[in-house]
Nucleic acid binder design. Structure first.
Lengths: 334, 334
DNA sequence: CAAATTTTTTGTAGCGCTACAATTCTGCCG
DNA sequence: CGGCAGAATTGTAGCGCTACAAAAAATTTG
């Protein structure tokens, strides 16, 4: 009685388009995959009819028959900050330029990441872009066995597949040297261990190295498990000042945290950079907007994305990590 | 000479796993798709062998054979703010609960969106989640012809597929009434036209309605093409004060813009909310962190995502838009 | 204008998996 | 211990497309 009279979507196949256009299915296939193989006139007829019918080639069938696809998969740990935004934009742009489509999957835990990779593998994507961080133990072998091109962005030497990253250590040294050159002596460093810890791992040794070289104490290190949002910036400042009231600079893990610390300084009536220099990391939007503007490290995340695609597409997976540029952005806060 | 001795990745198929486990391919298939149909003992053997071999079922083949997949596709206009972050998180969580995987594609223009939808259609996804905004003209018909379940998040009556959204008009009225109740009289409203304009469309009429009802002037409307980042907040404040130096409140399109306006107020020595009330929209992280904290509208974007998945999975595409909750978050700035 | 060449178009034969029906195996009752 | 219902397993027959080789058509050449 109450049956909804659904439209009969007899599924369109290449054959339907071929019939309507008076050509063979292979010609339709060629129109989509190798336009150059088909005469201009034939192609335009076929494409017009395909569009009229609303035909979209079945990629599943195509991938199955061809054994490969023109889709690249990326797994992201989260989409919260502009680094990842720029990274994804770089991936997408570079993929598009080379005729690939990019699909992304979000995974917040190693288990979710593993599951996402399995889906991507199941889709038989042409390549997989991972982000450095804690991985499930089975992940590496799974990817090796699958034999798919893989890159690990922000990954260093032990990367799964090939690493694509900027030199975090060099950036950290440059930033530390800058603070020292500005006359800072009691510099606090915030070390992050949880979550994306791996991506930050080289910062602390580099910091220590420069502090040591300058004959300064590298003991003002605060270890936090995770640092997200402005709130943690405030908490970090709290703890640092409790440890050493004469602190004259802090190195924060991200611009967001730095902004949080900055707001807290303002709340306490501390002048930045007069009393305390505050340095961020990552060149997020916010760092350009707060007052004073934040001195930070710019990672050109879009270049990382672009590099990742190039590595995946070129198939040069076995080489040393690809290094992308970075820049020290000296602004007002330090 | 310099040939890299590549490992011979003879592609693993279900047959290989079946042989190794001493069962038929169909049993392997059932283990993955319908675990209940297989005896516990058989299943554990098969799954163990599959894991050892690093076998991952070919979803392309599966989708082709079954005619449908357990993957849902979402197209996002950008990933810049926490609304979309929460939205995606809601999508992902709800999809996982129902045994679906979520893949996302980013599209910044209507053309890119169309292309993304074609890829998703080609993958024969089980459903597509769109975000309201300007669409390519062909998009609607393409989706109708494809007969795929579609939802348009933040979409209203004219949505492609089924709309899932909170009542933007009601939220705007509530916020306006709140400002009026606080004694504000010269209230400026920022109207956004470009990009995601559609998602904001109902705000201005609702604002006017309440201003009119209160016998106030609704003429302080500033129209901007796009409002992104803190910078536009500063510019907007500039322009409003040039138009009416006695302005006592502004309604910003997002918390980010509101924060920018707030910073600009502080730079000019204007007290918030003393001299000017500033209201944001969207309940982004930043609104909780700046001082004063921002009064805003909370959209529960994760609920929109959850609702979208429910609509897609249940197949109830023809009904009226699904309405999700919202809340007026009264904080310090207004 | 026939022969040689190049460009277009077209069959054939699967790709790896799943729906479905048919078959074989269990355990259990009379 | 035969007979049976129900559970577990297994063939069969494609899903829609593309690689490849072969055929046909268009173009050039002698």
């Amino acid at each position: 009685m109450s049956e909804t009279p659904h439209i009969l979507h007899k599924k369109l196949t290449m054959q339907d388009v071929a019939d309507a256009a008076g050509v063979s299915p292979m010609t339709v296939s060629n129109c989509f995959r190798y336009p150059d193989r088909v005469r201009e006139k034939t192609r335009s007829t076929v494409m017009k009819i395909a569009a009229e019918l609303g035909y979209v080639p079945n990629l599943s069938a195509g991938t199955l028959a061809a054994g490969s696809s023109r889709v690249i998969g990326a797994v992201l740990p989260s989409m919260r900050n502009s680094s990842f935004y720029n990274y994804t934009a770089g991936l997408r742009r570079a993929a598009a330029e080379r005729g690939f489509e990019l699909i992304t999957m979000i995974a917040e835990t190693p288990e979710e990441e593993l599951s996402a990779v399995q889906t991507l593998l199941g889709l038989r994507v042409a390549g997989i872009a991972l982000v450095a961080g804690p991985h499930a133990p089975e992940l590496r072998q799974l990817l090796v066995l699958a034999g798919v091109p893989v890159v690990e962005s922000w990954g260093g030497d032990g990367a799964i597949g090939r690493g694509v990253s900027y030199d975090v250590g060099a950036a950290s040294r440059a930033l530390t040297r800058h603070l020292i050159a500005q006359g800072r002596r009691r510099i606090g460093f915030v070390e992050v261990t949880g979550g994306g810890g791996q991506r930050y791992a080289m910062r602390l040794p580099a910091f220590r190295q420069e502090m040591f070289a300058a004959g300064l104490s590298d003991s003002l290190v605060l270890t936090v498990r995770a640092a997200d949002g402005f709130g943690s910036g405030a908490r970090i400042l709290d703890e640092f000042l409790a440890t050493d009231p004469n602190l004259d600079a802090i190195l924060c893990p991200t611009d967001v945290v730095a902004a949080g610390a900055l707001f807290e300084c303002q709340r306490r009536g501390l002048s930045v950079p007069g009393d305390i220099a505050v340095a961020g990391w990552g060149d997020y939007d916010i760092g350009r907007q707060v007052s004073p503007t934040l001195t930070t490290v710019r990672a050109f995340s879009d270049e990382i994305g672009k590099g990742a695609i190039e590595v995946l597409v070129s198939g040069e997976g076995a080489k040393a990590p690809l290094s992308t540029p970075f820049a020290l952005e000296v602004r007002e806060s330090a």
